[in-house]
């Protein structure tokens, strides 16, 4: 466990807490893509099935349970408790455009043709594109609440720190997980455009709005 990895996990957790706090305090999930949140819940569910089969560490187990709980709570807030505030009109990304290729690819390109391994691979590929419905929603409405941009910033920061973690592990332990690294690079690229807007607008106190 290196410093990039732990900071990455903390950023990831912070992102999920920021999102939950936004919904809980404003009693609204306006501007949040329910579809992205469903995809993240699917990502955690399919990746963390090893909770039932393998014990890795207390840290690993506890974090997985927290991530699952945060993710499902968020989905419940959007489609249950605060569904009246959910902007389903603008959350119009077609999920089959992501799910079909990701499912196909996880059957074709995996480490082992076993159910658990294919589901793990599916979760890695799906995570790399799960934010797209959210980014699509922002590009459609042309704006995002500042707190939503903080959420996206910490999610992107988590991805970037994981890249640093893999570079570190490659040099210190010769560890290299090709599927995770390639997907992680793809995922991080999706945040680049957003990072630019975040630094040039949000950090200068302006609201994120697209021309």
């Amino acid at each position: 466990m290196n410093v990039f990895r732990i900071l990455g996990d903390v950023s990831h957790l912070l992102a999920m807490i920021i999102l939950l706090l936004k919904i809980w305090r404003s009693k609204s999930c306006a501007g949040i893509s329910g579809k992205s949140q469903i995809l993240f819940a699917l990502v955690f569910t399919t990746r963390y099935l090893d909770l039932l089969t393998n014990f890795i560490s207390i840290y690993n187990t506890v974090m997985k349970i927290i991530f699952l709980a945060c993710s499902y709570t968020t989905v419940y807030m959007i489609y249950g408790k605060y569904r009246n505030t959910f902007d389903s009109e603008n959350d119009s990304f077609r999920l089959e455009f992501l799910l079909v290729p990701v499912t196909g690819l996880s059957f074709l390109e995996n480490y082992n043709f076993t159910p658990l391994e294919i589901l793990w691979t599916f979760s890695i590929y799906l995570e790399s594109v799960a934010i797209l419905p959210q980014l699509f929603m922002i590009s459609k409405t042309g704006e995002a609440e500042t707190i939503t941009t903080h959420y996206l910033f910490f999610l992107g920061l988590y991805r970037t720190l994981y890249l640093a973690n893999w570079i570190w592990r490659y040099h210190t332990e010769s560890f290299y997980d090709q599927i995770a690294v390639v997907s992680g690079v793809v995922q991080t690229i999706f945040y680049c455009d957003f990072f630019y807007l975040y630094v040039t607008k949000v950090l200068k106190g302006k609201k994120l709005s697209l021309p």
């Binding site: 996990d9 089969t53 890795i56 974090m63 793990w120 973690n165």
Partner: peptide, 10 residues
């Protein structure tokens, strides 16, 4: 093989 499961990242 589940015995080789070494995925410690989240």
């Amino acid at each position: 093989d589940l015995d080789d499961w070494d995925k410690d990242e989240l």
